[in-house]
Amino acid sequence: MSDLAPDPVSCMDADFEHNTKANAARRRFLQRIGVMGVSALTASSLPMNVSRGGSLLAADIGSSAASDEPVSGVSSERRWGLLIDTSKCSAGCDACVRGCHEEHGIGVSGNDHTDAQWIRKIDLEDNDSGETMSLPVMCQHCETAPCVDVCPTGASFKRADGVVLVNKHTCIGCRYCMLACPYKARSYIHEPVTDQLSRAPRGKGTVESCTLCVHRIDDGQNLQPACAVACRKDAHSAIVFGDLNNPDSEISKSIREHDAKQVRADLQLNTAVRYTGL
């Protein structure tokens, strides 16, 4: 983000740079006003009151921060997905689950049926061959997501980059999406939550699911989701994250190479989470 608009303050005194956190926050604010100014100039879809507020503020400060670069954000040019190599995933290992819980500050009360289940491990045995395998199941980030179709308020939605999320600002907790999801990927928050992390807001009475670690995606530093990081740290590297729309990406190449499959492909949901060795 920092390269989006020229920082009107960065050319000031050097000691300004070393000043307090409040000043840093202020600097960021000025930067962002630049961003807002751009968005006002390019007549983006900001609601009236705020776009007015933004441009008004920018005018107050006399920022000429208009830049040629567009406001970033999610883009439909990418579609994020996961590839899970079941041959590398081992039964009994739940590093990905723990990694997810730590990343999002999810506490475990011990009741598996009411606790958050963003990602779960399943051990399977093939009925014909007797072959066993283990794999994680999380929100499959369907292209045509049933949870998005059924949500009455539109709180369950698909971002432009294919990540299926719950907008907790508009979720009324009707739980219809949980009935609709064929993967049981959605969890309802049954108890009051108090010790949230600022990167993962979650609270009683709303529905949640795997976010594909959007806060990491949006970070712009090409961070991997917490489950993939935890899996690699545990020396399995069974989870690969990447852009499904880019035919040259590692994930796209692997999917082609190993003929990766979707869970319940018969439902024709075009999931963004794929599995090899299924």
């Binding site: 598996d112 491990k121 399943i122 199941v137 009935l179 049981k184 869970v263 299924l278």
Partner: peptide, 26 residues
Amino acid sequence: GSQNQAKILFPGKTVLASRFGDGGFP
């Protein structure tokens, strides 16, 4: 009744273990 049974994610496979009742739940 429509919710009270495990959804079948992997046809042709038996669930050996799951923390979330993929093989069945109370």
